[in-house]
Design a protein around this nucleic acid. Sequence first.
DNA 1: GATGAATGAGTATTCATTCAT
DNA 2: AATGAATGAATACTCATTCAT
Lengths: 221, 221, 221, 221
Amino acid sequence: MGKKQVPSLVKDERLISRRRAQIVKAAVGLFNEKGYHKATTREVANASGFSIGTLYEYIGSKEDILFLVCDSVYDEVVSKWEKLLDSNLRGLERLRQVIESYFRVVDDLQDEVLVMYQETKSLSGEALRYVLEKEIRIKNVFEKELIHAREEGFLTMDDRQLSLAAHHILVVGQMWTFRRWAVQKEYSVDEYIEYQLRQLIYGFGVNEQAPDKQPVPQKEE
Amino acid sequence: MGKKQVPSLVKDERLISRRRAQIVKAAVGLFNEKGYHKATTREVANASGFSIGTLYEYIGSKEDILFLVCDSVYDEVVSKWEKLLDSNLRGLERLRQVIESYFRVVDDLQDEVLVMYQETKSLSGEALRYVLEKEIRIKNVFEKELIHAREEGFLTMDDRQLSLAAHHILVVGQMWTFRRWAVQKEYSVDEYIEYQLRQLIYGFGVNEQAPDKQPVPQKEE
Amino acid sequence: MGKKQVPSLVKDERLISRRRAQIVKAAVGLFNEKGYHKATTREVANASGFSIGTLYEYIGSKEDILFLVCDSVYDEVVSKWEKLLDSNLRGLERLRQVIESYFRVVDDLQDEVLVMYQETKSLSGEALRYVLEKEIRIKNVFEKELIHAREEGFLTMDDRQLSLAAHHILVVGQMWTFRRWAVQKEYSVDEYIEYQLRQLIYGFGVNEQAPDKQPVPQKEE
Amino acid sequence: MGKKQVPSLVKDERLISRRRAQIVKAAVGLFNEKGYHKATTREVANASGFSIGTLYEYIGSKEDILFLVCDSVYDEVVSKWEKLLDSNLRGLERLRQVIESYFRVVDDLQDEVLVMYQETKSLSGEALRYVLEKEIRIKNVFEKELIHAREEGFLTMDDRQLSLAAHHILVVGQMWTFRRWAVQKEYSVDEYIEYQLRQLIYGFGVNEQAPDKQPVPQKEE
DNA sequence: GATGAATGAGTATTCATTCAT
DNA sequence: AATGAATGAATACTCATTCAT
C-alpha cells in the first residue's frame, strides 16, 4: 500500500517514468550479468544512456534502483499475465490456463523475474515489505483459482493445503528461471509447462496398488 | 571432480580442517544475517575467533569462504540425510521416506541451506561448476529413487518427466528455506512435509469427472 | 575600490538589485543555519524563491553569493549605524554613543554580521581584499573618533595604541555575535553594552595602590 | 567530560597517539591553508605521511580530524600556558603575567589556535559541546584570577562584569590570530601585548575632566 | 528572463588483501 | 602460526554549473 515513494529531483512526471524505464531496463541487464552488488551505479547510468549525475536525479540511492526493478517487474508480470487470461474457460481447463499463462510470462520476462527473485533479499525495510506484499498478491490469484476449482468440485484440498499449493505453483514458475542452468538445457518451455502441469495436477502419477504384491501399508499418522 | 583446491599457507592438515570448520560456522551466521556481499572478511575473522591475518592463512580470497560454506553444507546435508535413510522400506514408502528425510535435513540445516542457496550465484568459474555438480548429485539420488519406484510399478512417468520431477523435489525442499518468510509462518515442518508429500505424489487431488451434478453456476463475476 | 563586479546575464539593473536582495536574505538564513560550505546553491535558489537557473542569471559562482552577502551586510551596518549617529554630542559622550550605536547595529543585524564574520575567510583574491577593505573603513571610523576625543583632551593614547584600540572596539562588537553561545545567555544587549563600554573606557577599574600592604614585587625577568 | 571517543581500528594505544599527532599536525597546516571544508581527507592522509586507508584506521570520519585538532590544541595551549605560569607573583603583576602568558602561547600556537577558532563551528553535537566546554574552562582561569585580584583589592568589578571580562581577555588573545591580516602587520607580539594589557587594565586612559589644560603626557615608548 | 534537466569532476569512506614482526 | 597495521583501488553519492527550451 505504502508504495514506498522513490524520490526524484525532477518534476516532470512523464520524464520520470521514461527515465526510470530506461534505468530498469539497464539495471535488469546488469544485475543479471554481474549481480546487484557487483554492478556499480556508474555502470547503470552508462547503460541507461546518461551520466551518473542524471541517474541520481531519478533515484535516491542504489537500493532504489533495485526497488524500481522489482516493482516494475511485478507490474509487468501481472499486466502480461492478465492479457493472456481473458477467456471463458471453466473448471480444470481454466486452472490449467491460469498456471500455463503465468509460466509463459515468467519465460517471457525471464531475466527480470530472475533478478527480482534473487536480489529481493537485498532490499531493506519498507521496500522489502512492499515487494513481498506484491508477491503475496500473485499467490492470492492462484489461491483464488484453486478455491474456485474446488467449489466446482474438481479439487479436494483443505484450505491450508490449498494455500501452500498456491505458493507451490509460484515457485514452480520461478524455478524455470533460477534453475535454468539445468532445466533449460533439458527442456523447452512447452515441455516444461506440460510436465510441470501434469506434475502439479496429478503428482507422480502414482499407482497405489502396484503390481501383484504390494499390500498397501497401513497409513502413517 | 576438480575439488577446486582452496589454498592455505598452513601445513598441518588437521589444523586446516579445524580452522575451516570455524570459518564456515562463522560465515554461515554472518551471511545469513547480512548476506555474502555485506559481510566483511574482518567480521568473518572475528566471528571465527581469530585475526584477519590468520583467516588469510586458511583461504586465498573471500570467495573461498563462500565456496567452503557451500562445499561443506552439501557434505553435511548428504551426511545427515544418509543417517536418516538406512531402512529397508520398499516402494512408495521408501520414496516417501527419502523425500521426507531430505526435507527434515533441510529444516535442520536451514541457515546453511539458505545461504548456499542464495549465494551460490556469487561463486565464479570452477567453484560454481563444482557446487552445481554437487547439486546435480543430490538430484540424481531422487532420480534414482524415482526410477526404482517406477521399476517396481508405482509410477508411470517417462524418463524426461522423471528427471524434472527430481529437480522438483529438490526445489520443494529448498523452498522451505527461501520462502520461510511466508511458509514457516503458516506451517510447522511436519505439516509442510505432509502437505508437500501429498502434493508431490497425488498432485492437486483432482477429480476429473467432477460434475455430473455440479451444474456449473453461470456466474463468474 | 575595485568593487569586484559580480557578473549578471540580466540587463535590468533594477531587477538585478531586487533579485540580489532576495538572494542575500535567503543566503544569510541558510549560511547561518548550516554554514557557507554546507549550504547548496540549490537551497539558496529555493529559499530565494526562484530556480537554480535563475539564480545563475544574477551571480557567476557560489562565491559571489558570499561576496554579495558580505558586501551588503557592510553597507547595511554602515547605513543603520549612521542613522543612529546624527547627534551633536561631544567628547566622551560622543565616543560612547558611536560605540554603543555600533553595538546596537551589530545586535540588530546579528545573523548577518555573524555570517560575514565567520565566512569571510572563504572568499578569495579580489573579493576578500574588497571585504577586508570595508572592514578597515569601519575601523577608521572608530579611529577618527578616538583621534577626535584625544584632540579634545579626553584620551591619552599615542597613535599606534589608538589604531589598535579601534580594531579592539570592532572586535568587541562582533564578539557579541560570535560568542553568543556563551555571552547572550548571560547578558542582555543593554547589559553587554554597559559592561563593555565601561571595560573599554576604564579597563578593569584598577586601584593601583591596593590596600595597605602589597609591596609590589620587584619585576621579574 | 564525555571526552567524545574517536574510534580507531588499531589496538596499540601508543601507536594511536603517535599517528594522531601526525594527523593533527598535518591537518592544522592544511586547514590553515585552505580551510576545513576545502581540505580533503586524502590530502590530510598524504600530509600525515600515510595512505587514505591508514588514516581511516585512526579516525571514524573527517569531522573526527577536526575534533582531534581542537581537542589537542586546547590541551597544548593549557600545557604551554601552565609552564609559563609557575611564579610567585601577586596582585596586579600576577594578573598581568597570566594574561601575557596566554597571549604568548596564542602567538606561539598561532596556526593551531586560528584553525580551532575558525572551524569549531563545523563540529556537531557532542564534539562541539566538548570543545566549547574546554573553552569555558580557559575562561574560568581568567575569571578566577580576576576574582583573586579583586579579593586583594585591586579591582572593583562586580561578579557579572568580571565574568564578561574573562571572556573579553580570551577574545583579545584570539584576536591576535583571527585579525592577523591587519594587526600583525602593524605590531610585534611584544607591542601587541603591551598595548592590549594597558587597554584591558586601564581602558582608553580617559581623562574625564579634559579640556583647558591638556597636560599631554610625555610620550612613552 | 526563467526554468530545470543534464553533467561529471570531486569526495568521503570501505574493505579485501598483504606482509613485516 | 598468528597478528594486525598498512594499503589503495573501488564506489556511492553530491553539487556547482551549464544550456536548450
